[in-house]
């Protein structure tokens, strides 16, 4: 049953991907400006410019440019960057590991601490603890990343000298960026966990469990938590795309490479193949993340895979 559900969902990815590729292509090409002006250098002639426009096929109709791009993408060929002068696949492959490490660690960090904090906040009877956790959640969801990054650098790198200010060499350079991204994530996950647990607590079966004389701990771990996990998993799954491309400001401040930085640079230079390739990658990651989330939900809740819910 679960297999059939997964297969069905995978099939649906095909039309979605095609529509997304069209949207991405159109947005990128309808932006004002073009890559050639970022490519030509002072001293080259207007004829050189015209030659380049032809060389990169920018004088063709948008429809034929789209089909050229999408057919080569289907063959697994991302094409060559116009301004960055490298195969797009190489550029993505060079930046992806940085994004995966940073995003993956921040994801783990925020998921674990977020769930713990959310649970504490939902379960505790201590006003002070609850107030602290709720304050933390509020801060985490409102403090801008670049500001927090500079604050962390000033304190941990400049004052204490514990971690390098910037760069991407060794685990030490990961601590502050992971903390910066994770901080916002913790707040989000904690908030969702808290609400889900509070909702679950009001269910009738919980009252029954209490009546049966089960301890609070047992109810939390064996009954409440699995129940409350559904919305948390959805939120986490939606963040998978964010892991890859959402760290732009943090990458900028800490001087780290990454898919987000590559995308922003390419966008500024209108390097179409790079923007299209990396946006499509990110879109696929988001779709896969959602799929994983949905399948995980279906695995946990039979009502979903049977289409009853």
């Amino acid at each position: 049953m679960l297999l059939r559900y997964t297969f069905h969902r995978l099939l649906m990815l095909i039309p979605v991907s095609i529509s997304i590729s069209i949207v991405i292509f159109m947005i990128v090409h309808l932006l004002p400006g073009d890559p050639i002006d970022n490519l030509i250098r002072i001293g080259s002639s207007p004829e050189d410019r015209a030659r380049l426009v032809t060389k990169y096929g920018l004088d063709r109709s948008l429809i034929s440019q789209y089909f050229l791009w999408i057919t080569s993408m289907l063959r697994g060929d991302f094409g060559d960057a116009i301004v960055l002068r490298r195969p797009v696949a190489d550029l993505i492959a060079q930046n992806l590991p940085y994004s995966l490490t940073l995003g993956g660690l921040a994801f783990l960090f925020s998921s674990i601490f977020g769930m713990i904090l959310g649970t504490i906040s939902a379960m505790t009877r201590n006003r002070l603890v609850e107030g602290f956790v709720r304050g933390f959640i509020l801060l985490g969801s409102t403090v801008p990343g670049f500001w927090l990054a500079l604050l962390l650098i000033l304190f941990f790198s400049v004052q204490l000298g514990w971690f390098p200010v910037s760069g991407a060499r060794g685990w030490e350079s990961l601590v502050l960026p992971v903390a910066t991204i994770g901080f916002g994530g913790i707040a989000l996950v904690a908030r969702v966990t808290r609400v889900a647990l509070l909702d679950a607590q009001r269910e009738d079966f919980v009252t029954l469990l209490h009546a049966k004389g089960l301890s609070r701990g047992t109810i939390l771990c064996r009954h409440l938590f699995p129940h409350a996990l559904l919305p948390v998993v959805t939120i986490l799954a939606l963040r998978i795309g964010w892991i890859l491309g959402g760290a732009v400001t943090v990458e900028f401040v800490f001087g780290r490479p990454g898919l987000g930085s590559l995308l922003i640079r390419a966008l500024g230079q209108r390097d179409y193949p790079v923007v299209q390739g990396s946006l499509l990658m990110l879109a696929l990651a988001v779709m896969l993340g959602t799929l994983i989330g949905d399948v995980a939900q279906a695995a946990m809740d039979p009502r979903i895979r049977e289409g009853k819910s």
Binding site: I153, S157, V158, V165, S166, F252, V253, G255, P257
Partner: peptide, 12 residues
């Protein structure tokens, strides 16, 4: 090194 943010570069 490539450090895009001027404030970070200064702190380095």
């Amino acid at each position: 090194r490539e450090i895009p943010d001027q404030s970070t570069a200064f702190l380095e």
